[in-house]
Computed example of a mutant assay.
Amino acid sequence: MAYQNNLSSLTLLLLLVAFILANNVNGDGLKLGFYEKTCPKLEAVVQKITAEKISLAPSLAAPLLRMHFHDCFVRGCDGSVLIDSTKNNQAEKAGFPNLSLRGFQIIDDVKAAVEDACPGVVSCADILALVARDAIYQIKGPYWPVPLGRRDGRISIASESATLPSPLANIAQLKATFASKGLNVKDLVVLSGKGDTDPSLDSDYVPYLKSLCKPTDTTTLVEMDPGSFTTFDENYYTNVLKRRGLFVSDAALLNDYETSAYVKLQAQSHGSTFMKDFEESMVKMGQIEVLTGSAGEIRRHCRLIN
């Protein structure tokens, strides 16, 4: 059974991860209008293709947002999650946390259109950042500025995907993991992914979801947050408050004063500050450990190192 990586779960994930990694952000070299002279039609091209794809498959907006997060959290926002494995190397997308990523073909299609307009100019890392933003906007989510100028990394290793926060982590483990990176309790984040369910969660909710698939079914997608499959909202907080998250890391939010306070604020105020918080956090997240200047490369195809 494959649980759908729903958008509202990801909104919490990406809202908090930006705060988590704010001290690790290195956005030097990124700026708005970076391709103004070298590829002036870039954002229009990306927006057009992304809108066409998401209008046909709105459920892919959340996976594209998740893909952007997974890219940034491992080796920074360098497009390394897009690289295919070879006979000599298992790439990031072959790592367990990334096996459920979807939407790679959309990135390929956008990259092809950008290459037609401006050959060898725009990085895959920048394209992924723009597609994630435009996909969310297409389903009536917020629209945030995306400073550009990222370069593509040349290294992608499956085992490094293990550094992504685990959906099985309890609050003590999350504290230890992020403290090892110089991060405090306020920085805790929930990562959506596959894993077993938390025994402290609603005892009726998980069996209901599991009943929608046969025991051997690994392809059917089921919403973790019913009603938010193709919409951008703050409903995740309400579900977590009701203990209707699925993972240990969902429940962990309620076991810490600071993180539970934010969950309660958004659940009780219907996300009064969420959109603004999300926009600001996405800008920060997109600047994590970026390659700029002469570092890295500009890939001709996002799946292949030049």
Rank of each mutant, 00 (worst) to 15 (best):
F229P: 01
D225H: 11
Q266M: 13
A267R: 13
D126Q: 14
L14K: 09
A129C: 14
S100P: 00
N23A: 12
F96C: 04
L42A: 00
M1I: 09
D28R: 13
F232K: 00
L32I: 13
A295K: 04
K31L: 11
C77P: 07
S80W: 00
A44T: 14
G141M: 08
L30Q: 12
W144L: 08
T197P: 02
D250V: 01
L221A: 13
R300D: 12
A158F: 02
L188W: 05
V240H: 09
L209R: 11
L42K: 04
S228H: 08
V263R: 02
Q173K: 08
K242M: 09
D84H: 07
L168G: 07
I298E: 10
T216M: 08
S55I: 01
E289A: 14
T273G: 10
A51L: 05
V283A: 09
D225Q: 07
A267C: 04
L201D: 12
A252N: 09
E289K: 12
Q266W: 11
G27D: 13
L14M: 14
Y257A: 15
V222N: 05
L101R: 05
T50W: 03
K140W: 14
V114P: 00
L246P: 06
S200E: 15
L128S: 09
Q105S: 07
V46H: 14
G296Y: 00
G120C: 01
M282A: 03
M275W: 15
D116Y: 02
A295Y: 03
S211F: 07
S203C: 02
E52F: 01
N255R: 12
R303M: 05
A125W: 06
N255K: 14
Q173R: 09
L241F: 10
G182N: 04
M285R: 07
G76M: 03
H270D: 13
A51P: 00
L56F: 08
S180W: 07
T11S: 15
L304H: 13
N5P: 09
Y236G: 00
D233Q: 04
K194V: 04
G29K: 07
T197V: 13
T86F: 08
A117S: 14
Y3M: 12
Y205P: 05
K111I: 10
L65C: 12
I127T: 11
G27K: 04
E234D: 07
K111E: 03
C72V: 10
I288P: 00
K41Y: 06
Y237S: 05
K93R: 15
W144P: 10
A113T: 05
P167K: 01
C124D: 08
S123E: 10
I83A: 15
D204Y: 06
N306T: 09
M224Q: 15
A251P: 01
P63N: 01
N89V: 02
A252F: 05
A18N: 12
K264T: 15
V122D: 09
V17D: 13
L16W: 14
Q138L: 06
A267W: 11
L65N: 11
A158V: 02
L188I: 15
N5M: 12
N306A: 09
D250M: 10
L82R: 04
A112F: 01
T259A: 00
K276S: 15
L15G: 06
T231Y: 05
S180Y: 08
I288W: 15
I288H: 14
V240I: 15
S260L: 02
L56C: 00
E160N: 13
N5G: 10
Y35E: 03
R102I: 05
S228V: 01
V81M: 01
